[in-house]
Structure formats: structure tokens, C-alpha cells
Design a protein around this nucleic acid. Structure first.
Length: 200
DNA sequence: TCTATGATCCCCT
DNA sequence: GGGGATCATAGAT
């Protein structure tokens, strides 16, 4: 498996990066607890002009990492329960981020079951951003972590997808964002059962 | 200090 | 298909 280089994350086109992340392998290795899975669903958040992004409300201590340089993790606690894992992209000063919404488990499923408290591996294990965060052991304390380190990275294992396998839709849970709620910034692998929401 | 709220999920009817 | 869980953050007092 080839680890994606820092340059992958520093490009300007978030939509393109969000699309290319489909089929790649997400790896976390916190203290030797190795887990990996294939990314099947992503959402792009295009910075200050995007009303759906946290960054649109300005630069704060929490959103600081999104404004930082690409290739780092932004982990956010939602509804007091769910740890959401985001990938920061673009160069410093431009707040682009990609939310990982769905992952198909590969290695370390035993560890994931332990973390989620589930009995068996099924599609609920890592479908939806909240579950991905839980299964892969993400925590808000990991905000700002590098994506090219040993504990956290994204790899290419040679798996390729055809453009016809990629579906797009408006993003989920951001209806409040006015016109931007209609942007097709959500990307997923068609038919994959680890894709959340109704449109697969 | 205090309070509202959210890029969600799960269990209950 | 509806509501409760549960807490860091941000903006108001």
C-alpha cells in the first residue's frame, strides 16, 4: 500500500480531492491498534464562501485547524456524542475540508467491534460519519494530527474505480445553508452498503 | 458564568 | 417516524 503524499492534500480543488478519496484506504494505528477501511462516501466543504462549513462563521480556536495547511485531521464533536473525522485540504489560509461519511471495514474489525460495542460486523459498523469516528477511534483531541504520519494516514492499495461508479448528491444535514444546500458536493460509490442516507 | 445548539445515531412506537 | 442522548463551542449576559 502506498501512503498518499502531502501534495495530494495541498491542491486547490476540494471537489476533485473528495472524488479521488473514494476507494482509498483510511488507516488509524493509535498505539498499535491497527484498523483500516475503504472510503466509500465523502463530502466537500469549500471554505468561507460555503455557508454549510463551520469556517464560514469566521476563524475561531475550534476552526483554526481548517484554516491551516492541508494534510491534517479536523475532528469535531457533534450532538455531544459523535466524533466526526474531516480531512483538511488546500494551503494555509484557505479553509477547505472533506468529511468522511462512510467506510467499508478491512482490517482490525475486532477492534472496531470493541470500540462500537457491537457483536458482529455488518453495514452499521462504519456507515455514517458518527459511526466512522467511533469505529476508527477518533477523538477531538486528535484535531490537527498529520495525515502522513504513522498513526493516521490514507493509502492507495491499487483499487481503482470507474467514473460511472461514482454518485453525487446534495450534502446531508445542511438544508439550512440556503443555495449552497443544493450543491452536489457529496460523493459516494454507487450501491455500496456502507454509504449512508437514502440515495445510494 | 450561563445557555442554546449542532456536518448524528439508535431505540422505541 | 419521532425523540432522547450528551457535551464542546460560541455568543450572549
Amino acid at each position: 500500500m502506498k501512503k498518499l503524499p502531502l501534495s495530494f492534500y495541498l491542491r486547490a480543488d476540494v471537489e476533485q480531492i473528495a472524488k479521488e478519496l473514494l476507494g482509498k484506504v483510511l488507516v488509524t494505528n493509535w498505539g498499535g491498534a491497527f484498523t483500516s477501511g475503504r472510503i466509500v462516501e465523502t463530502e466537500a466543504y469549500a471554505g468561507e464562501i460555503d455557508n454549510a462549513s463551520h469556517a464560514s462563521r469566521g476563524r475561531t480556536p475550534r476552526t483554526e485547524v481548517i484554516f491551516g495547511t492541508g494534510g491534517t485531521a479536523y475532528v469535531y464533536l457533534c450532538y455531544g456524542i459523535h466524533q466526526m473525522f474531516n480531512i483538511v485540504t488546500n494551503i494555509s489560509g484557505i479553509p477547505h475540508a472533506i468529511l468522511i461519511r462512510g467506510v467499508e471495514p478491512m482490517e482490525g474489525t475486532g477492534i472496531m467491534l470493541q470500540r462500537t460495542g457491537k457483536k458482529k460486523v455488518d453495514e452499521t459498523l462504519s456507515r455514517g460519519p458518527g459511526n466512522v469516528g467511533k469505529a476508527f477511534g477518533f477523538h477531538t483531541s486528535q484535531c490537527g494530527f498529520s495525515l502522513v504520519g504513522e498513526e493516521l494516514y490514507i493509502a492507495d492499495d491499487g483499487f481503482t474505480i470507474k467514473p460511472s461508479m461514482i454518485g453525487t448528491s446534495p450534502r446531508i444535514g445542511v438544508d439550512y445553508a440556503g443555495d449552497h444546500a443544493d450543491w452536489h458536493f457529496r460523493y459516494f460509490l454507487k450501491g455500496n452498503k456502507y454509504v449512508s442516507g437514502k440515495i445510494r
